[in-house]
């Protein structure tokens, strides 16, 4: 039953899978981790982006990754509008934003699900590209190219976003707004515009993430539900708002899922991310490396 080869296999595919999880969680790490927006619709936005990629690939034969880049500006604008709406209805009114905000985003997620069903049907959808379906063999181990692509792109995305947050003026402003909104206001910057910009980026990165999602496996309109646990698990474990932490946490989750999958079977897989999330929350109610005391 148990063998070292199987374990090694699980760890390798877990690491690759983990990098992919990081890619789909980065945006949430910005919006929930840094901005405190309880965006449970993040996975729904992700699936929506995947369908955008699917549409371009199916209708015009555009490469999925290129398609992801093409829809990025649209998603950015979508994020700007979504945050403006959220800000007007919740943050501006003050209290209770978290509670009603989460209900609000659940409503949005349901609406997106149904619109996708009405437009594309409930069937699984996938994309075609030269690197999908092939695999790389090392000895007995077989690593699918699609996972390697996801791995490489996810790593690049994480590095880029980390650099953006630490090296550019806007990136540093975003991190500052998360820590002390008042100080930023005193310096003459408008925290709301910075937050709006940051939220735009959190949805913009979903272009590439959505492409990876549909490259890694076929998607269906209700796939977002199983990603609520994964993305929130990663972001909370990571320590809210840390990009490198997101990568590490996602790899931990990926490896854990792969090992459980190998040893106990697929039927236990959905619970892994949520069980880890529960564990983390029970030990540290504010997240594993939460920035608030």
């Amino acid at each position: 039953m148990f063998s070292f080869d199987l374990l090694l296999d699980a760890v390798v595919s877990g690491v690759l899978l983990g990098c992919f999880y990081a890619a789909v969680s980065l945006g949430l790490s910005l919006s929930f981790g840094l901005l405190d927006v309880p965006n449970v619709a993040h996975p729904a936005f992700l699936v929506m982006a995947s369908y955008g990629v699917f549409f371009l690939n199916e209708s015009y034969g555009v490469d999925p990754l290129l398609a992801g880049l093409l829809i990025t500006p649209l998603l950015f604008v979508f994020g700007l509008v979504a945050y403006r709406l959220y800000y007007q209805t919740f943050e501006k009114r003050g209290s209770d934003a978290g509670v009603r905000g989460i209900a609000f985003f659940f409503g949005i997620a349901f609406i997106i699900e149904v619109l996708l069903i009405l437009q594309f049907g409930v069937d699984q959808r996938s994309v075609t590209a030269s690197y999908i379906g092939k695999a790389w063999r090392i000895g007995d181990m077989r690593i699918p190219f699609r996972l390697l692509v996801a791995f490489a792109v996810a790593a690049a995305l994480t590095i880029l976003l980390t650099l953006y947050l630490s090296r550019t003026f806007m990136g540093r402003a975003i991190r500052a707004v998360a820590q002390d909104q008042e100080a930023l206001r005193l310096m003459g910057a408008d925290p709301i515009r910075i937050k709006q910009w940051a939220f735009g980026i959190s949805t913009a990165v979903l272009g590439i993430a959505g492409a990876l999602l549909i490259i890694v496996a076929p998607v269906n309109p209700t796939l977002d539900r199983s990603y609520i646990g994964r993305t929130f698990c990663v972001v909370v474990m990571a320590g809210l708002g840390s990009m490198s932490g997101t990568l590490v946490a996602a790899i931990i989750l990926g490896v854990a899922e792969a090992i459980v999958l190998t040893m106990f079977g697929a039927s236990w897989a959905p619970a892994i991310s949520f069980a880890m999330l529960l564990g983390v929350l029970a030990v540290r109610p504010q997240g594993l490396f939460g920035r608030r005391s």
Partner: peptide, 18 residues
């Protein structure tokens, strides 16, 4: 607090369902 409680309850649901 707040949203963390909500997320934990979603997590609990999936764990029990599984």
């Amino acid at each position: 607090q707040g949203i963390f409680f909500s997320i934990a309850t979603i997590a609990l649901t999936i764990v029990i369902e599984t």
